[in-house]
Simulated assay, not measured.
Amino acid sequence: MDAVRRQRYLKLLGIEAWRPRTAGSAQTEPASCAAPVAEAPPARALPSVPDSARAFSMPRAKPKPEAPAAPAKTAPVRPQALEVPADWTGLRAVVKDCQACKLCETRTHTVFGVGHEQAPLMIVGEGPGADEDAQGEPFVGRAGKLLDEMLKAIGRSRAEQNPQRAVFIANVVKCRPPGNRDPEPDEVEACRRYLDRQIELVKPRLIVALGRIAAQRLLESDEPLSRLRGPLHRYGASGTPVLVTYHPAYLLRSPREKAKSWEDLKKIHRQLQGQA
């Protein structure tokens, strides 16, 4: 093909420059005909992420909050080995603040005792009830009124100032058992030192135990009331005489037993008069 025709074809094809193939390059396309190859843009390095930022950006499971520890319960101070004062003033103060057993946790007042401190007759009941807990004095409810009538029948009174006709009234425990239940052995044991000291200070000629619980705890016996009532017993190292009779609360529930109670009252009177 002559140069003129070739130039015209090239122009029709839109090829402005042309050069013939050289030997060994038969498969090579003209430079002007080679399709341009787009070069890939240089890879961009990702910016480095600080550890702190990476840790912040990564979602973490929130730790479950720990349940607050329950506050430790502090047990009341129970001075089991506390020395018991040998005088009335000190003894009253110790009993008032006593925490020697669990009864201190539910009481309103301690019930120390009432009456003449050198009375020849000492009455020992079981434990305070609701009225006694509220007022801090033993036998102030219905049973207490009946007890006052019983004492009056033998010429005695808790308010009497004449030692010959006086009486001192106390209980085996100084705090009310919840629900008026029987005092438990450890509660009685915690209060025994107080009762022992009261008996030592009063120096009664006769102790009267009212009801089964008072009699059993006072005499350290498990015998029923029917066997404890009647004979003369002895208390402690001093050998103080003890008589057992019905509790006034029992007599209110069982009025037929009042006749037996009257026999006990006469025996108490004779014992105090030295006629037993």
Rank of each mutant, 00 (worst) to 15 (best):
A72K: 14
K73F: 13
P79Y: 02
Q80L: 14
L82M: 03
L82N: 01
E83R: 06
V84M: 00
P85T: 03
D87I: 11
D87G: 04
W88G: 09
T89Q: 12
T89K: 08
L91G: 05
R92I: 03
R92P: 00
A93S: 04
V94M: 00
V95T: 06
K96Y: 12
C98F: 10
C101D: 14
C101N: 14
C101A: 05
C101H: 09
K102A: 14
L103D: 02
L103P: 02
L103H: 03
E105R: 13
E105C: 10
R107E: 07
H109G: 04
H109N: 15
T110G: 10
Q118I: 05
Q118F: 06
Q118E: 14
A119R: 00
A119D: 00
A119S: 01
P120A: 04
P120W: 03
L121K: 00
M122N: 00
I123E: 01
I123F: 00
V124N: 01
V124D: 04
V124S: 01
V124H: 01
G125H: 01
G125S: 09
E126F: 12
D133Q: 04
D133E: 08
Q135H: 11
G136I: 08
G136Q: 04
V140D: 01
G141V: 11
G141R: 10
G141I: 09
R142Y: 03
A143E: 08
K145L: 13
L146Y: 08
E149C: 13
E149D: 14
E149Q: 14
E149H: 13
L151F: 03
K152V: 06
A153C: 05
R158L: 09
R158T: 13
Q161N: 13
N162K: 13
N162A: 12
Q164N: 10
R165M: 04
R165I: 02
A166C: 02
I169C: 04
A170V: 14
N171L: 13
N171S: 11
V172R: 05
V173I: 12
V173F: 05
K174Q: 12
C175P: 01
P178T: 08
G179C: 07
G179F: 10
D182R: 14
D182F: 09
P183M: 14
E184N: 10
P185H: 11
D186E: 15
V188N: 07
E189L: 13
E189C: 08
R192V: 06
R193V: 15
L195H: 10
L195M: 12
D196V: 09
D196I: 07
Q198K: 15
E200H: 14
L201W: 10
V202Y: 01
L206T: 00
